[in-house]
Structure formats: structure tokens, C-alpha cells
Amino acid sequence: MTVLKGIIPPIITPMNEDESINEPELRRQVNRLIEAGVHGLFPFGTNGEGYILTEKEKERVLSIVIQETDGRVPVYAGSGCIGTKDTIRMCRMAESLGADVLSVITPWFAKASDEELYEHYCAVAKAVKIPVVLYNIPARTGNSLSPALVERLSEVDNIAGAKDSSGSFDNMLQYLERTRGKDFTVLSGNDSLIYWNLLAGGGGGIAGCANVYPGTMTAIYERFMQGDLEGAREAQDSIRSFRDCFKYGNPNTIVKTAVAMLGYPVGKCRAPFDRISPEGLEAIRRVIDENREAGME
């Protein structure tokens, strides 16, 4: 079974001016991130605009990422849908293409009880053979995976871990406490908490900022594993100025805009999530210039 660990970027989906997928640039981003030392790739996550891609586009993006990765790092496929039946279909599609891990976000829009979520994830895990990672991001979905529910789900065959994007360190700590001693990995979905996740016994993070600074983000994990806690903390702290730019708009849009400013033709996010104020654009440029001078990459 794939070991869940390290820094896994939710790789952005490059687009042309007409919002079609820029396939050559997607391949370039795959190689750029792997060459920087990332430990996995996560197509059509939140930063990959999975919420706005069609199923055919998701299948094409995943095929390209798997082909270009060529086994160098595990590929995590974001395959959650609102309904259980649709989620199983997407998970089986990803598995058939050669994905290594499935990231299954909670259903959204309609409120689900813990028992409904439990049955949903059990059905998904039973339908596939590759590991399933629970994805908790209640601010976006309206449904939350409670620590008690994660503990129950950690006992289910094929459910191998959880990504917590709640933004609550205490919530992530409870995931870790309730699953300690089990073959279950907790990953931070908040880039600011990766170092603290590792200190508490977690496996690393699925980090949107790794699209912008893959070397710096990878250094958090690598330095930590080498016992260089001060160096890992320095790498963690160094992304603060860029994270502060998130106040200017949708974080996905900020990340994609920053990658474009670094010189990669990744295009904009799909409308209507494609606008940043002039003030925001200037702030991002200033931070990128400052971080470039500081040697961040």
C-alpha cells in the first residue's frame, strides 16, 4: 500500500485563454514539482479547480498527470462527489487509470449526519482496492468529519488517512489522538500547520503553496525528518508573507496568479473565480520579489 507522507501539492490545472486545459503546461508543472522534490501529486483538488472541471476533463487531467509522473511519486486523485453512487463511479475511474490514492471530499450542499457520512465512506472504500483519504473542509462543503467519526472510519479497511482543512489545529490533534497506533495517516490541509502536524505525529500536508514554492514547502518535511527542527520551522515561517496575500481573494486564484507571475503560462482560474484587485496583484508581486531575493523557490 502507498505510504502517505510528505508534501503533496494539489497541482493547479493550467488553462488557455478560452478556459480549455493547457496540456503541455500541465505536463511541465508535473515535472517542475517532482524535480523540486515533492512527495506526491494531487490532481483536481481545490487548487486544481476540481469543483469546476467536467468529468471528462478530470479524466483527461488525471491521465496526463499519471502518464507524466510515470511512477516517480504517488498520484492522489480527488474523486469525491455529492452522491455515493457518483463518488464510487469517479473513484473506480481514477483507480482504472492508475491512481495510487483516492482523496474523497465530504458531500456538499445538503447537510449529512455522521451516520450518513459513515455509510457513504464505507461504501466507497468497499468499492475500490486503492487507499482512500478522507477530506475534511467544512468551510467549503458545509459538512464536517468529527474526530469521533474519523476514529470510526479509521477502522474501515482501505481508509488509510485524513486530510484536515478545517483550519483548527485542535481538530487535527484530535484526529491524531484518536487514530494513534493505527495504520492511519493525518495530513494537514492548511499550509501554515504542516510543521505542527509533523511535531504532533502527522504525515505532512497537501499544500497549495507548494505550487508556488515547491522547494521551500518540501524543505519543511525533509528538514524535519533529518532532525533539523529549527530549519523546518524556518521553512514553515517563510511562507507567511505569501499566505497573508490570501486576504485579497480566493486562495486558489491567489496561488494560480502567483505561479503565472513566476513565468509559467498557467492562465487564470475559470470564471467567475478569476478576479483579483489591483491592490492584491501588487501585493502578490511584491511578496514574490521579496521571496525571490530571499532565495525561496
Rank of each mutant, 00 (worst) to 15 (best):
A235F: 13
G78I: 06
W196D: 12
S63D: 12
E290F: 05
Y195S: 10
Q174M: 11
M261Y: 15
L281Q: 07
T106C: 12
R32I: 06
L62D: 02
F273T: 01
R140H: 10
L117W: 00
R72K: 13
R180E: 11
D183F: 03
S165C: 02
S188R: 04
D164A: 10
G45T: 09
P107W: 07
D183W: 04
L4K: 08
K129H: 14
Y118G: 01
G167W: 08
D289G: 01
Y264C: 05
G227D: 11
V259K: 07
F273H: 02
V156L: 03
A219P: 06
E279S: 05
R275C: 04
I66T: 05
Y213R: 03
S113C: 06
A219V: 05
T141M: 07
P131S: 04
A36R: 09
M93G: 12
E17P: 07
F224I: 06
S192P: 00
N211Q: 09
G40Y: 01
R240E: 13
E282R: 10
N22R: 02
N250H: 14
D274I: 00
E59Q: 15
T253D: 03
P24G: 09
R32Q: 01
R292E: 12
I130V: 04
N171C: 08
T69P: 03
S79K: 05
E19Y: 15
R223D: 07
S166K: 11
D157M: 09
S103N: 09
Y51F: 15
S188A: 08
G231Y: 08
L97Q: 13
F242M: 15
T216E: 05
A123N: 08
E116W: 08
A162W: 05
S238Q: 12
M261G: 03
D274A: 01
L198Y: 11
A258T: 10
T257F: 14
E55T: 15
G189I: 11
K163S: 01
K268E: 03
I88V: 14
V150I: 12
A200C: 05
L41M: 00
E59T: 13
L117Y: 00
V3H: 03
F169P: 07
S154T: 00
